[in-house]
């Protein structure tokens, strides 16, 4: 009897062990080396797509204008941020708060500058009054999130003009406070679209189904 029990104990413990390992792997954010899905790093400026793209509905191509004409969508230069932030120096509710405060204390309204927007001014070497403050300007070093291997040639222009919508690859950007990589950007994931590209891409002129040549992306 105990012999039987001994054998069964061995098998049961084995099964539990295997199940455990599978469970751990499946829901930990364990990925093979080159897969950066879910990557959400801290950016030097807490820029919120939710505010700009979601609420204010600014078009993607306003800042990332490269997507229309070049392979890099590009991160906007600070001069593009300054198009608005030369006037908007803080969020509307903190301005209202200041107004109420100023009224209560009976003094005139101070210019309120939110710490994040202040980072733009310092990067451009401006002081509070948006005049050159004499220090050197230093470009903002954003953290690159969507990062394909060096040997892959991905052209935003091709996809943009073929009618591929931004959030098909980048996910619901307009709802993100902090940008997160939604898809794993693996070759298999790209090929899912490229293989059956011909059928449902109506806007693409001529043929698009033969996009599974290797030299479409590797050269």
């Amino acid at each position: 009897m105990d012999k039987l029990f001994g054998k069964q104990l061995k098998y049961i413990s084995l099964i539990i062990l295997v199940l455990g390992v599978v469970l751990i792997i499946s829901n930990s954010n364990y990925h093979i080396p080159s897969n950066n899905e879910g990557y959400q790093p801290e950016q030097p400026i807490k820029f919120s797509h939710q505010v700009h793209a979601g609420e204010l509905k600014i078009s993607c191509l306003y800042c990332h204008f490269g997507a229309e004409k070049s392979r890099h969508a590009g991160i906007p230069a600070l001069s593009i941020c300054m198009n608005c932030h030369k006037f908007v120096s803080a969020s509307s509710d903190s301005l209202n708060l200041e107004e109420i405060q100023a009224e209560k204390e009976g003094r005139d309204i101070k210019t309120v500058i939110s710490p994040e927007i202040a980072k733009i001014y310092t990067a451009l070497g401006y002081d509070e009054q948006l005049q050159p403050s004499g220090e050197a300007s230093k470009p903002v070093e954003w953290i690159k999130i969507h990062n394909l291997a060096d040997y892959v040639f991905f052209s935003h222009q091709a996809h943009n003009n073929a009618g591929v919508n931004c959030n098909e690859c980048h996910g619901e950007i307009e709802t993100m406070e902090q940008v997160r990589q939604v898809s794993d950007l693996s070759m298999g994931w790209c090929l899912d679209c490229h293989r059956e590209a011909g059928e449902n891409f109506d806007t693409a002129p001529e043929r698009t189904k033969l996009l599974s040549d290797c030299s479409t992306c590797h050269y």
Binding site: S34, N36, G66, G74, P76, V140, W142, K144, N147
Partner: peptide, 25 residues
């Protein structure tokens, strides 16, 4: 042992966007 991320890479744009220069073109 590779649950860690690939090393961090930076994207550094212009300060003032010159007229005719589109990165990549």
């Amino acid at each position: 042992a590779s649950c860690s991320r690939a090393p961090v890479e930076k994207a550094i744009p212009f300060l003032i966007q010159p007229e005719e220069v589109i990165p990549g073109k």
